[in-house]
């Protein structure tokens, strides 16, 4: 006997707990990635603004660093949230990527992209490359494991001389080049990520969509320009 189409009530509907069901759903996961993404965008912007203080001179940078250190528990709270955001952003993305792979078990022999940009198609790779960089970046400037000599840098007020540390770090062309490449991948990630977040969080519509995707590109290249300007300025001797 021919079979009737099964009723959807027969298919799995997920948890009855609304929060768990949300977190298990594809859109829920996307929103989690989006919200953590927004947090990371804010952090990246703030971090850039802090870094750009290098143009204001040694005193400003070191005072800012000391201010941050002085925040104590608040700094640790912020760091905890940041780490959580990074972990959740990555773990959920990997889950989604695995589900998406399963949704297309047989690939097209011959596929012809119509709209997807290289940045959107390489999000997971650009993201993972940025992660690798972040680890190195922390080892270099935060834990100073790669460069223990940075620990002893002090300015005339006996503050940790972050200014000098940045100049020493970026005076090595290889480090600067690696840094610039990593920031390039970050910018590519943001170029799609920014407009993607607007779409995923449900803010996009036909009136603003053009503005959002252009805005995403402008924002990411501004971030790129801002970050990369520092090693460039150091290498060409603008900052000594």
């Amino acid at each position: 006997m021919p079979s009737a189409t099964a009723s959807p009530t027969q298919t799995k509907r997920g948890s009855s707990n609304p929060f768990i069901a949300f977190c298990q759903s594809s859109i829920g996961k996307k929103i989690i990635v989006g919200v953590t993404g927004v947090y990371l965008i804010v952090f990246i912007t703030g971090h850039l603004l802090g870094n750009l203080e290098i143009y204001l001179g040694q005193d400003h940078v070191n005072a800012y660093a000391q201010f941050l250190q002085g925040l104590g528990p608040i700094l640790w709270l912020e760091r905890a949230i940041l780490i959580a955001a990074v972990v959740i952003h990555i773990v959920v993305t990997i889950q989604l990527a695995a589900e998406n792979r399963a949704a297309r078990p047989q690939k097209y022999a011959h596929y012809n992209y119509q709209a997807a940009k290289p940045s959107s198609r390489t999000m997971i790779y650009s993201g993972l490359l940025v992660l690798c960089f972040v680890i190195y970046h922390l080892l270099q400037f935060t834990f100073m494991t790669t460069n223990p000599e940075y620990r002893h840098l002090e300015d005339h007020l006996h503050r940790h001389d972050v200014y000098r540390m940045m100049i020493l770090g970026f005076q090595q062309p290889i480090i600067s080049l690696f840094y610039a490449a990593a920031i390039f991948f970050l910018a590519a990630h943001l170029s799609h990520g920014f407009s993607s977040v607007v779409q995923t969080l449900g803010i996009n519509n036909q009136k603003v969509s053009g503005f959002v995707s252009n805005g995403g590109r402008w924002f990411s290249w501004l971030i790129f320009a801002g970050y990369v300007s520092i090693p460039v300025s150091i290498l060409i001797g603008l900052i000594k």
Binding site: P8, T11, K12, R13, G14, A21, Q24, S25, S26, I27, K29, K30, L96, E99, N100, A102, A103, R104, Y113, Q114, A115, A116, K117, S120, R121, M123, H192, S195, S196, Q199, T200
Partner: peptide
């Protein structure tokens, strides 16, 4: 109900490629 059924049927999620 529509989104959860969509998930249960094995469709992937949207990563905003706009294909």
């Amino acid at each position: 109900n529509m989104v959860r059924t969509m998930d249960a049927l094995g469709f992937g999620s949207c990563t905003n490629h706009y294909e």
